[in-house]
Simulated assay, not measured.
Amino acid sequence: MAPSGLTADEKAAAVRIALANATVQDYLHGDYEITDVDYNTITHAFRGVERSETVPTVAIETKDAQIWVFVDLETETVVAIAKNYIRTPVIMPSVTQPISTPPGGETPTVPPTVQPTPRNDTAYLDIHPAGGRSVLLDPEDERYPTIDAECQELIRCINAQLKTGFSQEELAAMKRNSTYVALRFSQPTKFETRYIVDGSPRQITISEAVFFMDSGEEQNIIRTLAPDGPGVWTTSRDRGALKDLVAPVLAEGKKQ
């Protein structure tokens, strides 16, 4: 049974606990706003059993991120933190927009800035450096197999789920101006993970997995898209091997 709404005192206590957390303090640079304090549900593995908890959650918005802090009022501790980046779109000039017309010359135009367009129903890797352009690798590329294998191993090492979904718009905002690796499957693919539920490894189906590379709090997180909805997971595997594998590709994207 879901608890009734929080009282004013409980909301004040939840905010106090959230803001006292060292990790949350690291996220709060400059101005921020408490946008909501209410109950929310998180799901995670506990001693081999999937367990859901409905706990007070403090929603905070900064100039570049939305943060959700899940707190336990009885123990006065933070039990989980979720963060989504807010990115301001960079609007490029139209391909036909004039810059200036030199005397007696033709009106120059801004060359198009076009990101590679993935093909539908085709497996590919989207490797994107912050401030650069995506480099798309298909399975025929000699670099693809080793990066694909490492991404899939990270997925198999998933050991818990953060029950905080996200929209396509939120994911697109996070990708914008971030360094990431996205593995897209030609069709939804099932993985057996290390996430133990009721004594057995949990199987999850994924259409796309996204690994953000330039954010400390994302280093053990995998964000997935699937026919049954998005997921936010933690993995026990270190991301160092993936960073080494994609470093040359990221450098290529920065030059483009």
Rank of each mutant, 00 (worst) to 15 (best):
M1S: 04
A2G: 02
T7S: 15
R16M: 10
A18K: 03
L19W: 14
V24A: 05
D26F: 08
Y27D: 01
H29M: 04
I34L: 10
D38Y: 12
N40C: 03
H44C: 04
H44S: 14
A45M: 10
A45E: 12
R47T: 08
R47Y: 14
V49S: 06
S52R: 02
S52K: 07
S52H: 04
E53C: 00
P56T: 10
T57V: 14
T57I: 10
A59C: 06
E61P: 00
Q66F: 13
W68H: 08
V69N: 09
F70Q: 05
T77A: 01
T77H: 08
V78F: 08
V78W: 10
V79E: 14
A80C: 04
Y85T: 05
R87F: 07
T88C: 00
P98A: 07
I99D: 11
P103A: 06
P108G: 10
V114S: 09
T122A: 12
A123W: 10
L125N: 07
R133F: 15
S134K: 00
L136E: 09
E140G: 06
D148G: 00
A149T: 03
E150A: 11
Q152E: 15
R156C: 13
T164R: 05
F166R: 00
S167L: 12
L171T: 00
S178H: 05
T179W: 05
A182S: 13
S186M: 07
D198S: 02
S200N: 04
P201W: 10
R202P: 05
E208K: 00
G216N: 07
E218S: 01
I221F: 05
R223D: 10
V249T: 15
L250P: 10
E252G: 09
G253E: 13
K254I: 09
Q256N: 15
